[in-house]
Structure formats: C-alpha cells, structure tokens
C-alpha cells in the first residue's frame, strides 16, 4: 500500500537518509527503530508528505505521493507528530472533530459526528469530552490527539514517537489502541518508537535504520535478536523470553563480555 523507493534527504551537506527502499505491510504495525539521528522521523515525515525528498519517491497504491493533492492524501494517510507548539484552546471533542476536516471542511454531517463519537469511545475518552486540551495531562493530551488521527479514518496512520514523555500506563494504553486499530479495523500503522520493548511486543514488522540507511526490514521475530540489536544500537543486549512476551535487556552492559570479544 505504502512504499518508498530510493528515497534520499539531505540538509545542507549532511545526508540524513540515503536511498531508502522499503514496502510496508498492509494491516500491520510497523515500528521504525534505530538510534537518534538515524533518519527515522525524516523517513516518516517524507511518507506523510510533510517533507519533500531530494530524490526518490513515496508511493501510495503505486501512485507517487507528489502527484496526489494534499486534500486527497489527508483521506489516505493521517500523521500524528509531537506538537509542543500547539497552543490552541480547544475542547477534546472539538479537536477530534478536526480529524474530519479532510472530509467536511468544517460542516459536520451526521456521519462525521458518529465517527467523532466512535473515535472518542475507542480510546475511552468520553469523560474528557468537554475538557480543554491545555488543561489535560500529557498522557490524556496524547490520547486526544490520537483520537483526532483515528477520526481521520485513513487506511494508513503514521505516528512520530507517540509514547514520548508518557508514563507506562498511558504508553500501554496507546499501544493497545494501535493494536486494536490493526486487528479490528485492518488499518496500517507505522510508528517511530524508541522503546525497543514496546516495539518488540506490539509490532508485527520492524524497519531498523542506522546512520541514514535501512539496516533491517522484516518480521518482528527476526528483528528482535541479540546480534541485530547489539549491532544496531552498539549496546550489549540480552533477549529474555517470558510467558508474556520478549524483553530486551540492555540496561547494564556486561563489560567482561566485551573484553572477551575484543581479546
């Protein structure tokens, strides 16, 4: 459905992304992982059409995204970014209503209202419906923004670090909501994520980037291995299989091991 071909991006003379090729599986959660500055967010923003690539193209259903009008693309792909500068005083239901903007341009139909209610209910935000978003906690705020993105009812959702600055409970709530979006509604979710354990336990597919190149692209099972992750993050990883999933332990690097390898 969405794929990138030979995608390149440079700022001044620094190459952020060099000739990236990838196809993203439909109806799956794909996590973009990798160290800071690997080009994850740049790749995501180019797929969202919010940054123009230097060369190469993003394709949606085989059509180059550059050829799709912005207003049409907003009905195919919804993007959620961290928006620290967002200072509008809107109520939660008003914010979610703007998710219908690509369809209604403001005049909400009965169907639009239904979708807004459903999106709010999907994330169990009914009790916050009439709260102003600038008076919410960070986690509730992020949920409200996610509800707006869901209300856009696009087959593809792109999320840039949706778990940033959230406590564990809200992070789990958001990941479970994304899981349900895929499993119940068949939507494709692509997200940039730093917490490797969330990526390992909630995604179907992993695209790993390292210094502006795609390092790995495949199913999550093949991605979460000690060798691949150690190589990707240059950290010592231990994968622990538990009944509830896989845990990547990288918190305390084992120095003796390194010495042995070096020796």
């Amino acid at each position: 459905m969405i794929s990138v071909e030979n995608l390149c991006k440079e700022y001044a003379d620094k190459t952020v992304l060099a000739s990236a090729n990838a196809a993203f599986p439909v109806g799956c959660i794909t996590s973009l992982i990798g160290p800071n500055g690997a080009g994850k967010s740049t790749l995501l923003m180019m797929m969202a059409g919010l940054i123009k690539p230097v060369s190469g193209s993003v394709f949606f259903d085989g059509v180059p995204v550059g050829d799709i009008p912005v207003a049409d693309y907003a009905r195919k792909v919804a993007t959620l970014r961290q928006s620290p500068g967002f200072n509008l005083r809107l109520k939660v239901h008003e914010l979610v209503a703007f998710g219908r903007f690509p369809y209604s341009k403001g005049a909400l139909s009965a169907h639009d209202r239904q979708v807004i209610d459903d999106s709010i209910a999907f994330l169990s935000l009914e009790h916050l419906r009439n709260a102003f978003i600038d008076e919410l906690s960070g986690g509730q705020r992020q949920m409200a923004f996610l509800a707006m993105t869901i209300a856009q009812q696009t087959p593809v959702l792109l999320l840039d670090e949706p778990l940033n600055n959230l406590d564990m409970k809200h992070a789990v709530q958001i990941m479970q909501a994304l899981r349900r979006l895929c499993d119940e509604q068949g939507r494709t979710v692509i997200l940039v994520i730093h917490d490797i354990n969330f990526a390992a336990n909630y995604s179907d597919h992993i695209v790993a980037l390292k210094s502006g190149a795609i390092h790995f692209n495949g199913p999550v099972y093949d991605a979460v291995t000690e060798t691949l992750l150690s190589d990707l993050y240059e950290l010592d990883f231990e994968i622990i299989n538990s009944k509830r999933g896989r845990v990547c332990d990288y918190f305390t690097p084992v120095l003796e091991n390194e010495n042995e390898v070096d020796g």
Binding site: A48, G49, L50, V70, A71, D72, Y73, A74, R75, A78, T79, L80, R81, S83, G85, F86, L88, F98, G99, F101, P102, Q152
Partner: peptide
C-alpha cells in the same frame, strides 16, 4: 495548529 498538522489534515 501549525503547518504540520495542517498539512496532515489536507489544508
């Protein structure tokens, strides 16, 4: 809402 949100909403 800013240029990015606006772009994402098709404005």
């Amino acid at each position: 809402m800013g240029e990015e949100v606006a772009g994402s909403l098709g404005l």
